[in-house]
């Protein structure tokens, strides 16, 4: 038995209000959102462990601040999908626009298509898995968490990165300041295999990825690095 909210008649506030009112032990655990028509801020800030299926393309900040729900976008998502997610799972069946998973602290963001520029910007602990490619400046100032890309990465991957770990199977157009390739050890392969499985990419070989991370040269100001700030 699922709940239906049709955004052709209901407002975004109706949808989010209903989802926010759910107690943690709710038995209304499956929600279908019809006619999203690219509207912004759908299914944001949900704390209850429910599943929300958005039947089409979503606009900006979809599933932002997610606190534990599973949100599935059955189309494309606009800017900032799952921005500042704390926990839960957000899945985009199509492509995601810029700044997917921005500043997110936890949870799992899966994008089956491509993610455009600045994917995982300032990420703080989220796991992001992208089935396609990511655009330029992805993982910019990424602080913690992982970004896994099955396709290619655009220019300046991991610019000014802190301690996030980046895994790319395809080509990297260029690495950003202080981002370097690192050795892929067994522990990395095992953890990556587990994440790929959790994201639904079971058949993908974790051994086919390369790992990138911080060279830790920009942590403290050094005058020789001034050009990189």
């Amino acid at each position: 038995m699922s709940e239906h909210i049709d955004l052709a008649v209901a407002t975004t506030r109706d949808l989010n209000g209903a989802l926010h009112a759910l107690p943690p032990d709710t038995n209304r655990t499956l929600w279908r959102v019809l006619n999203p028509r690219g509207q912004h801020a759908l299914a944001v800030g949900i704390d209850a462990p429910v599943r929300v299926e958005i039947a089409g393309h979503a606009g900006y900040y979809c599933a932002g601040m997610n606190g534990g729900a599973t949100v599935v976008v059955e189309g494309n998502a606009g800017n900032g999908v799952a921005e500042n997610m704390m926990a839960g799972r957000v899945e985009v069946r199509g492509d995601a626009s810029a700044a997917a998973g921005a500043t997110a602290h936890g949870g799992l963001l899966v994008i089956h298509g491509n993610a455009s520029a600045r994917c995982g910007i300032s990420m703080k602990g989220v796991d992001i898995v992208v089935g396609g490619s990511v655009g330029h400046m992805s993982a910019f100032m990424a602080q913690a968490g992982t970004l896994t890309v099955l396709g290619d990465a655009g220019d300046s991957l991991g610019d000014s990165i802190y301690e996030a770990q980046l895994f790319v199977r395809g080509s990297v157009a260029s690495l950003g300041a202080d981002c370097v390739e690192k050795e892929m050890r067994d522990t990395h392969r095992a953890a990556l295999a587990a994440r790929l499985q959790a994201a639904g990419f079971d058949g993908v070989d974790a051994g086919s990825f390369r790992r990138y991370g911080s060279a830790r040269r920009l942590y403290h100001f050094h005058v020789d690095n001034a050009g990189n700030y």
Partner: peptide, 22 residues
């Protein structure tokens, strides 16, 4: 500028939708 502007075009449900590259 946003997908919202396109939602009433005839046949949009089956259209190829993408973001232009830089």
């Amino acid at each position: 500028s946003e997908y919202r502007a396109l939602v009433d075009l005839p046949g949009i449900a089956d259209a190829r939708v993408w973001e232009p590259e830089p």
